[in-house]
């Protein structure tokens, strides 16, 4: 039973960090699941259900990139890919080794396979379209900072924001996955940082949505988001967090989502979320010394937020975000925990 379930998971994620010589074997998957003791079969079963929805293979990423390119060409009204590439700069703001670099490498492959063309051959042409690629907007912190910095850059006597506002430049943010809560915050931040002038001048396109905004209508909560009525250790963890914002986002409204489309059932969702919460807390309890204020059982979040973490369920062939629940990636020498997805630390 376990072997079969582990094999099912292996089939989905076998390419995870293959480029870094990581090889997640079925045995590793079982060893990870066994940490959940009597819930090991349950965890493996539920993962078989959700992983196909959240794991982005390299091939899937190329499909996404192709969708983005077609969307951009169409949006900006180009008749040919070469005309589009002549005018377009794919921004390289993130440091080497981060997702943006990997996506731009794949973009080269996609352009080559579909049109036998490369964007680099047009790199010296003057640009008017600026495209910021990334894999995921979780809290949006990195993306927001990069966009603010880029818009504030002066280009001669004009800043990039001025060139965008007077339509000399077009700026587009192209993502594989976007979280609705983080997106709302980043839109607000971009509005306020540029005196509410940016508005619809900034384009957004994404392939997948994590609907995690607890005050939006009809969210599918395709992430981990626990309900009220938790045991005392969970309640006391939350009460003692040195954070004071957005406590009303700590628990989801149990009536939501109305229809369960992400987990295998409404009951299994609750069971799964509670297991992640308890195991995440036991991981945190192993930390000796100071606990960094952004660490939460369900994944990293802003230190001032009084919640259990972002609960992200999205990962790619090249890494897992640290906004995902700790049980998936936590790896500290001396700690009694092995991660399912060893995380690549860059910079």
């Amino acid at each position: 039973m376990k072997e079969q379930l582990a094999q099912g998971i292996h089939n989905i994620i076998k390419g995870y960090r293959a480029e870094d010589q990581i090889n997640i074997t079925p045995e590793h998957i079982i060893a990870w699941a066994d940490q959940f003791e009597e819930d090991s079969i349950f965890m493996l079963t539920e993962l078989n259900h959700i992983l196909p929805q959240i794991y982005i293979t390299k091939e899937k990423a190329k499909e996404f990139i192709l969708q983005h390119i077609n969307w951009l060409v169409n949006k900006y009204g180009y008749q040919s890919i070469s005309e589009f590439l002549i005018d377009t700069e794919f921004m390289k703001i993130q440091q080497e080794g981060k997702s943006q670099f990997a996506i731009l490498e794949l973009l080269q492959e996609v352009l080559n396979e579909n049109w036998q063309i490369s964007f680099q051959q047009y790199s010296t042409f003057p640009k008017k379209n600026f495209v910021y690629f990334d894999d995921v907007l979780a809290t949006g912190s990195t993306l927001g900072r990069h966009i603010v910095d880029w818009l504030s850059l002066a280009n001669g006597d004009q800043r990039n924001i001025d060139l965008v506002l007077n339509d000399q430049y077009q700026l587009s943010i192209n993502l594989f996955c976007l979280h609705t809560w983080g997106h709302a915050f980043q839109k607000y931040r971009l509005n306020k940082d540029f005196q509410d002038a940016l508005g619809r001048k900034l384009s957004w396109m994404h392939n997948m949505t994590v609907e995690n905004h607890a005050r939006f209508p009809n969210q599918s909560y395709n992430h981990a988001f626990p309900v009220h009525g938790q045991p005392i250790n969970v309640q006391s963890y939350l009460a003692n967090l040195p954070a004071d914002k957005y406590e009303n986002y700590a628990y989801r409204n149990e009536a939501m989502p109305v229809n369960e489309r992400f987990f295998s059932s409404r009951e299994n969702r609750i069971k799964y979320e509670n297991i992640l919460l308890q195991k995440g807390l036991s991981i945190i309890n192993q930390i000796k010394g100071e606990i960094k204020p952004n660490i939460r059982p369900l994944g990293l979040i802003n230190p001032t937020y009084k919640t259990f973490g972002l609960g992200t369920h999205f990962l790619t062939w090249r890494n897992i975000p640290n906004n995902c629940p700790l049980v998936y990636w936590w790896e500290v020498p001396g700690h009694d925990w092995i991660p399912l997805f060893p995380r690549k630390i860059i910079g």
């Binding site: 809290t139 915050f185 802003n302 001032t304």
Partner: peptide
């Protein structure tokens, strides 16, 4: 809402 958005990874 905006002041600490960059603090997620400041640790």
């Amino acid at each position: 809402s905006v002041e600490d958005l960059d603090n997620v990874y400041a640790y």
